[in-house]
Amino acid sequence: MTVAADLLKWLVGISTLMVFWEIAGRQAWLGDGLPPLSGVFDYANEPRSTELLLRSAGITATNASYGFVIGSLIGTLIACSGQIWRPLKQGLDTLSTFVNAIPLIALGPLMIVTVGEQFTPMATAALAVFFAVLVATLGGFERVPNVHRDVTRAYGTTHWRALLLVQFPNALPSLIDGLKLGVSTAVLGAILGEWFGAPAGLGVLIVSSMQNFQINLLWSAAIIGTVMSGAAYFLLALLQARLLRRLGL
């Protein structure tokens, strides 16, 4: 229900933006750099460019998906391990406070030399998701109500059972918030990784079209990237709403 309302708001916003773009393009307010939106669509509709765009988008989506799965799994597992092994928790809490200050773009070149060009997009996507999910999940563990901690302790439970039965369900809404945030950063991370010299993908298309001044191609690729991360975000928001209702939270 609320997700649908959100979607409607988004659609209204986007339509306004599109109309404005079309006018700005036709009037050439920003020169050649911003062609009319209809021109971009016409270009993308040509069979040759459609094929190229879809192929690139597919590669980016694959990179982003792998990155998303790997990053969120590792982020969740590491956040959880701090609940099992207390000394780790201190370190993780410190890490989570400055994780947002780590510039992903500076890590790109490092990825190229460590995992290679082929896997850099996946790795940067995974890293971006990992940070988002780690911070969100750690935050979720902080928000476990004190009375839940007391009840858990009073029945003489192990760290594992406390984690599975009490802490994790309590942290789940936060974790899903992290996933929601992470899924759009995954697309961004993948494109960024491709930028650094992957064989193919939207990022590669953006770099080459920029260098060859193929403005319509550049805008098409950028739009597809945006739509992809937006769609993934809404998919997760939908999932979140369902899950939270299921859990009675």
Partner: peptide, 8 residues
């Protein structure tokens, strides 16, 4: 004092 039931 607080019931502390698990809401899920």
């Amino acid at each position: 004092q607080e019931h502390g039931l698990m809401p899920w």
